[in-house]
């Protein structure tokens, strides 16, 4: 069985991402966990000015983000690529009402994937997002993540757009399957 937080990688980019979200006045962080997102989630949970919301399924987070915006707050949805599939019809809320929407998606089913069950949705993630009207940015290197998320945040909340930032599996690192 996989362990949590067990990928061999440098995750200092997670701190940079959280700083961008904080500086961008994001106050609601909704998530279904992924090991590659665990550092960002931990930072959100330890910050008293940020409300972290653990979800049972990702589409809840789409609706929560819209409700937050209706009430004047900024939200972000953190999820794994598999969760994008769960959101499809809920994305219609974004398009119909032109809600701003920011999501960070930890990719599975691509680089060095050992679990074939992750592949179909991972391979379809970008197209699914684009089909539902969401612009897709992608970061595969640690040094480009901060600027990518910052650019997405500006487009979302300053230009009222809908943007997903895919965090590539190569960035997140190979998943270790053995417990230490």
């Amino acid at each position: 069985m996989p362990t949590q937080n067990s990928r061999m990688t440098d995750t200092s980019w997670s701190e940079a991402v959280f700083r961008v979200l904080k500086n961008g006045n994001v106050t609601q962080v909704a998530f279904v966990p992924d090991a590659g997102l665990s550092d960002i989630i931990g930072l959100a949970q330890r910050d008293p000015a940020v409300r972290d919301l653990v979800l049972t399924t990702e589409e809840e987070g789409v609706a929560i983000a819209c409700g937050a915006w209706l009430g004047g707050q900024r939200a972000v949805l953190l999820m794994q690529s598999s969760g994008v599939g769960n959101c499809v019809n809920m994305f219609s809320l974004l398009t119909n009402c032109q809600f701003p929407f920011l999501t960070l998606v930890a990719m599975r089913g691509e680089y060095a994937e050992l679990n074939p069950w992750q592949v179909p949705m991972g391979r379809a993630t970008q197209q699914v997002l684009e089909l539902m009207g969401i612009q897709v940015l992608r970061a595969d290197k640690a040094e480009e993540v901060e600027d990518m998320v910052s650019a997405a945040l500006d487009a979302v909340f300053e230009a009222n757009d809908r943007v997903a930032v895919l965090l590539g599996q190569k960035l997140i690192g190979r998943k270790k399957w053995e417990r230490e």
Binding site: Q28, R51, I64, C66, G67, A68, W69, G72, Q73
Partner: peptide, 10 residues
């Protein structure tokens, strides 16, 4: 869930 996000914001 939309009401939840709204309630937290307001």
């Amino acid at each position: 869930p939309m009401a939840l996000g709204l309630a937290l914001a307001q």
